[in-house]
C-alpha cells in the first residue's frame, strides 16, 4: 500500500467530480469505442454475406481448403484468454495483485499462441498460392471456381484485421502487466484493466462469429 494519500489518489483526475464519475465516463467511452468496433467489422460481415449468397459453392470449396482443426484450436485458446482476462479484472477488484499479474500473463501467452497458430495457417495458404483476389494462384488444388479467390479475399481481410486487434491487445496487456507490477492498481482504481478486458472480450466475440462463418461452411 502507498504511504502518502496523494500518491494513492494520483489516478484521480481533477476535472471529475468524483472517482465514480470518472469510472462511468471511462466506461461510456469504452462502450462507444466497442460499438464503433462492431460497426467497423460489420463491413466485413456484410461483404461476406453478399459474396456468400452470390457464390455459395465457391465459399463451400474455399472453406474446405481451410483447416477447421486449427481454427477450432484458436477458438478454444481465445475463449480461455477471455476467461483469464475476466479473472484478471476480478483479482484486481479484490486487490489480489499477484493473481492479477498471473492472469494478465496467461492472457498474453494465449494471445501469442493464437498468433503463432495463425502464422502457420497463413504460411500454409501462401505456399499453396491461396491468396486474395488477383494474387490467387493455386498450384495444386485442381480446378477451382473463379470466386474462391473472393472467399480468400474476405478470409484474409477478416482474419488479418482481427489478428491486428490481437496484436494491439498483446501490446496493451503487456502495458497493464508492467503497471500492475508497479502497484498502480488497487480495488479503488483498476479501470485500465477493466477496459482492456472489455476490448479483449470484443476481439473474442468477433472470432466467435468468424470461426463458423469461415471454417465451417457445409
Amino acid at each position: 500500500m502507498e504511504s502518502s494519500s496523494s500518491k494513492e489518489r494520483s489516478w484521480f483526475q481533477h476535472h471529475f467530480a468524483s472517482p465514480g464519475q470518472q469510472l462511468s465516463a471511462a466506461k461510456l467511452g469504452m462502450w462507444l469505442f466497442l460499438a464503433q468496433e462492431v460497426l467497423f467489422f460489420s463491413g466485413i460481415f456484410v461483404a461476406y454475406g453478399i459474396y456468400r449468397t452470390h457464390h455459395p459453392e465457391a465459399f463451400s470449396i474455399g472453406s474446405h481448403l481451410l483447416d477447421w482443426k486449427l481454427g477450432g484450436l484458436n477458438t478454444v485458446v481465445l475463449l480461455f484468454s477471455s476467461l483469464t482476462a475476466a479473472l484478471a479484472v476480478r483479482s484486481s477488484r479484490i486487490g489480489d495483485t499477484r493473481a492479477t499479474s498471473r492472469y494478465l500473463l496467461l492472457t498474453i501467452i494465449c494471445a501469442c499462441i493464437f498468433l503463432v497458430v495463425k502464422y502457420f495457417e497463413y504460411s500454409a495458404k501462401f505456399s499453396h498460392g491461396l491468396l486474395p483476389g488477383k494474387f490467387f494462384d493455386p498450384h495444386d488444388a485442381g480446378d477451382l471456381p473463379y470466386h474462391v479467390r473472393s472467399f480468400f479475399g474476405i478470409y484474409f481481410v477478416a482474419t488479418g484485421v482481427h489478428g491486428l486487434h490481437v496484436l494491439i491487445g498483446i501490446g496493451y496487456f503487456i502495458f497493464l502487466l508492467v503497471r500492475n507490477n508497479q502497484g498502480r492498481f488497487s480495488p479503488a482504481y483498476n479501470t485500465p484493466i477493466d477496459m482492456g478486458a472489455l476490448y479483449w472480450h470484443l476481439v473474442d466475440l468477433i472470432w466467435i462469429y468468424l470461426f463458423p462463418l469461415l471454417y465451417l461452411i457445409d
Binding site: V38, L39, I50, T53
Partner: peptide, 18 residues
C-alpha cells in the same frame, strides 16, 4: 443501449444491403 444499438445498426446494414 449503446452496444446493442451498434448491433441493431449492423443488422440494418446487412439486411438492407442483401
Amino acid at each position: 443501449l449503446v452496444f446493442l444499438g451498434s448491433l441493431l445498426f449492423a443488422g440494418i446494414f446487412l439486411a438492407y444491403t442483401l
